[in-house]
Design a protein around this nucleic acid. Structure first.
Length: 581
RNA sequence: GGUCCCGUAGUGCAGUCUGGAGUGCACGCCGCCCUGUCAAGGCGGAGGUCGCGAGUUCAAAUCUCGUCGGGACCGCCA
């Protein structure tokens, strides 16, 4: 070994030892001809070495230093450094690599550097303690999840990256076949189909730390490629799946933070929408939606009299923070989410009681005003926001407004995990055909209590489908799957898919179910999202070694690149000229 | 496909509204000095296509239009 110790693991108990450490020169401080301090950095920390200033070492030089661990002289102890009690003296320095000055400081100041610069030089960015910590958070999560799943009797199985294209769901990355020019593989959006076939194959409990790829626009919480803990179990009900997933998530969280979270609360999708206006509510703050439809049952106010659902939220003592311009902006926000408008009311003192400062105050009766104040428990200085629309829009818009007004950054504590259960089987309808669209995916098992009205009232059929939410981010989702071909065909029929089309689109997946499929269900959750939140980051790029910016163009490798004409020739591919505008 | 914000030295910024010579700050870098510093200190120095291209103007970092790049979000992500 080239070294005897890591920089960060040395302490006062090593005083007197002769050691060899190696790493990068974090900083050098010169003090005349024969004295300089070199702060040596490796992934474990920083260690001060006292060296002869005749040695020419500069920032980011890679050096090996041999010397004696020594107690620092009185008055020179650095409390802000973990190794601040000690230093290496009688040091001999061997330069292993020289280095150009880095394009940006490799300390906390780089947090403010343009992210493109960091990504272009990601290999330098990764030397920083923040990135080292974040990669190790990811590693800890993977290790504890793997351990948790194995200890629960799950079997780790790899599934193919090259698979057939499937028409449903996210846009796929496709890979041309050389041996069959004109045909293509698709990279998996998830191992969904394979893991269900593993259940048919008797694996019983499967898991995989799986790479998934989706060719959809990038976001703070979305990359083209991401990792998920993917799992599937046979002979189980909803509670069994949730318990297995919960154990792995809590194990991972405990391993990273040192604190085991409380058992995860559950809420139904319907309650989540009614109370928080979201299917991924952030429970770190209140500001729940208040039901107001009944308050306005006989109202003269036109905008309210025709609405199917009226709800509102209250921002405590926020009236002063929201002037006309900002409220107009908030109204535009509400409209951009589909609302026809937004009513704001500032609660003010009027003689003998409370009233409203609002453009619509004059349209509200005394009874309605009093009922609103009472329903919200409002006091002077509060700001009320009301939305009147069809139920789903009312909820969703208020959920968005609630987040705008009250939501802390996702990375801020405390951690609030939440199961959202009983999702609807169908959400909305296809505009062209009028048939319902699957809420989760077409293989999701309807709730047995709702099977009697599957055909007569499909939009009110619940699914055995569930999501895991952390601080308002969807970590993952899952469901109990349909294992009975007859039930599967009922669902397909509702989706407007006849047997011939089902065979064509999903045949390779459905036919195996004729050979004896066990009841089964599963789940998958995103490891970058969990990692980011546990690492205190609000962007998953910060916990990915080599992420891509929103354009998907890699500033470090310049991918994607053009390929040689001969490569295209071999694949039977001709590229169209760029479209003329 | 859309909305909003950003782009000035290697890095972070000020200057832009109200046009007047690349005017400036901090860090970093290079050289010299310095034997107890620790995001050391002192002195000196180098470093600029104000993202790019048009337009307006006697004059553009500054105003206008376009374009490129980046970010947040909507659509999209079964």
């Amino acid at each position: 070994m080239m070294r005897t110790h890591l920089c960060g693991e040395l302490s006062q108990s090593d005083i007197g030892e002769k050691v060899t450490v190696a790493g990068w020169v974090n900083r050098r401080r010169e003090h005349g001809e024969h004295l300089a301090f070199v702060d040596l950095r490796d992934h474990s920390g920083i260690l001060q070495c006292v060296v002869d200033n005749q040695v020419d070492v500069r920032s980011e030089y890679v050096v090996k230093i041999t010397g004696q661990v020594t107690q620092r002289p009185e008055g020179t102890i650095n409390d802000s450094l973990a190794t601040g009690q000690i230093e290496i003296t009688d040091a001999t320095v061997e330069i292993l690599s020289i280095a150009e000055p880095p394009p940006f400081p490799l300390d906390d100041r780089a947090d403010d550097v343009d992210e493109m610069v960091r990504l272009r030089y990601r290999y330098l960015d990764l030397r920083r303690s923040r990135m080292q910590r974040n990669l190790r958070v990811r590693s800890t999560i993977n290790a504890s999840i793997r351990n948790s799943m194995v200890s629960q009797g799950f079997v780790e199985v790899d599934t193919p990256l090259l698979m057939p294209t499937t028409p449903e769901g996210a846009r796929e990355f496709i890979v041309p076949s050389r041996q069959r020019p004109g045909s293509f593989y698709a990279l998996p959006q998830s191992p969904q189909l394979y893991k269900q076939l593993l259940m048919v194959g008797g694996v019983d409990r499967y898991f995989q730390i799986a790479r998934c790829l989706r060719d959809e626009d990038l976001r703070a919480d979305r990359q083209y490629e991401f990792m998920q803990l993917d799992m599937e179990m046979s002979f189980v009900e909803v509670d069994d799946v949730l318990a297995a997933v919960e154990a792995s998530v809590l194990d991972a969280a405990e391993a990273v933070t040192g604190v085991r979270p409380d058992p995860i609360e559950r809420i139904t999708w319907l309650d989540a929408m009614n109370r928080f206006g979201s299917d991924k509510p952030d429970l770190r703050f209140g500001m729940e939606l208040a039901e107001l439809t009944d308050v306005f049952s006989t109202t003269e106010f036109k905008a309210f009299s025709t609405a199917g659902s009226i709800k509102g939220i209250k921002a405590d003592q926020a009236a002063g923070d929201w002037g006309r311009n900002k409220l107009d902006g908030l109204t535009d926000t509400a409209k951009s989410f589909g609302a026809k408008g937004m009513v704001w009311l500032k609660v003010v003192d009027v003689d003998g009681g409370l009233g409203f400062d609002s453009p619509v105050a004059k349209f509200l009766s005394e009874v309605e005003t009093a009922a609103l104040i009472e329903r919200f428990g409002a006091t002077a200085g509060d700001l009320l926001l009301l939305i009147a629309d069809e139920w789903h829009t009312t909820c969703e818009v208020l959920g968005e407004l609630r987040n705008r007004l009250g939501r802390p950054p996702v990375s801020e504590g405390p951690y609030k995990y939440l199961w959202v259960v009983d999702f609807p089987l169908f959400v909305g309808a296809d505009e062209a055909t009028g048939t319902p669209k699957p809420g989760h995916h077409p293989f999701c098992h309807p709730h047995p209590e709702d099977l009697d009205h599957l055909e007569s009232d499909p939009m009110n059929v619940r699914a055995w489908a569930y999501d895991l939410v952390l601080n308002g981010w969807e970590l993952g989702s899952g469901s109990i799957r349909i294992h009975d071909p007859k039930l599967q065909q009922r669902v397909f029929s509702l989706l407007g898919i006849d047997e011939a089309e089902a065979q064509k689109r999903f045949g390779f997946f459905l036919n195996p179910f004729a050979y004896g499929a066990p009841p089964h269900g599963g789940f998958a959750y995103g490891l970058e999202r969990l990692g980011a939140i546990l690492a205190g980051e609000d962007n998953i790029r910060e916990v990915i070694a080599f992420p891509k910016p929103q354009s998907g163009l890699d500033p470090m490798t310049n991918a994607p690149t053009e390929v040689e004409p001969s490569q295209l020739e071999e694949l039977g591919i001709r590229v169209l000229p760029p479209p003329a505008d």
